[in-house]
Structures are given as C-alpha cells and as structure tokens.
Amino acid sequence: MNDKPRYNYQKEIDNLRSRFGLDFVSVALVQPAEDRFVLTWQFVSGNINNRYKRIALQSGKGIAGVVFKTGKPLLMKNVNMDIGAKDLFNYPIIVAERLQSLGALPLWSYNRVMGVLLFGFRQENALTEALFHLIQEEIGPEFGSLYAKERVIE
C-alpha cells in the first residue's frame, strides 16, 4: 500500500517532540495483510516503557481506535476529567505512558484512515486548544506517505 519510499517517521516524531516540548509522541499504523491489518503503535518518542509494543487495537477502542473509526482529530486536555478512573483501563497507551493531556490526529491514505498520530504531556491541561492547532498546522497536510487532512475527491 505504501507507494512512496519508506518514510523516516522516527525522525519526524523526535523533531515534533523536541519542538513543542511534548512528553510523548507516537504513530500507529495499519499493518499489512499478514497481520490482519491490525493497528499498532509503530514509532514512539519519549516512551517510559515498552508496553506499547504489546498493544494491538481494535477499531473503536482506545485512543487510536476511536480516531481510526471516526476520522476526526481528538483533544483531551485533561485525561482525568475526560475519561475518569473507572474507564481509564480501556485506554492502555494512556495508562502505560501516564499521559494526562493529549491530542490525536488521523492520518489518511486514499480517503481511508491508515494511521494515527498521538502526542501528549504527562501533566494535566498542558495541551491547550491553541497548541493543538499549532501542532496540526506544523505537521501540515502531509505526514510521511500519509496526509494529515482528509481530502475531498473532485
């Protein structure tokens, strides 16, 4: 499915993290047919453990799952307010990386969500709306072989 040469996502997310002082940045990508097209966190920057490697997401579940299914950007300024302790275990990446404030963007290819970009802080309310939009702009329309905005077919 990748038409363009393999893109250096690692470098890109490392840059993103240092530029905005983010605690954690990660990219989840849809896996090839051999892996039944599951969505897994492929590249991480700023992780505190390797738990992300075990997580395979079902669509509609977890952060990546929700963004994948809805195709809409997601902003959680304060995880404790937006999710609540009882439901938190359904968001393994938030638990594993102890994120408190985060944003997620769908990454597109041929009008299908093929990946999810996640970034966040381990501090409540650190990701403001303004910063969220700034990061969205910084990423621009293209991110790797994917694009960060849904394109309308003419």
Partner: peptide, 8 residues
C-alpha cells in the same frame, strides 16, 4: 488481554 490492554 495482552493485545487489548498491553498487560502480560
């Protein structure tokens, strides 16, 4: 469980 929650 391992896949869904990353717990071993």
């Amino acid at each position: 469980i391992e896949k869904n929650y990353g717990v071993l």
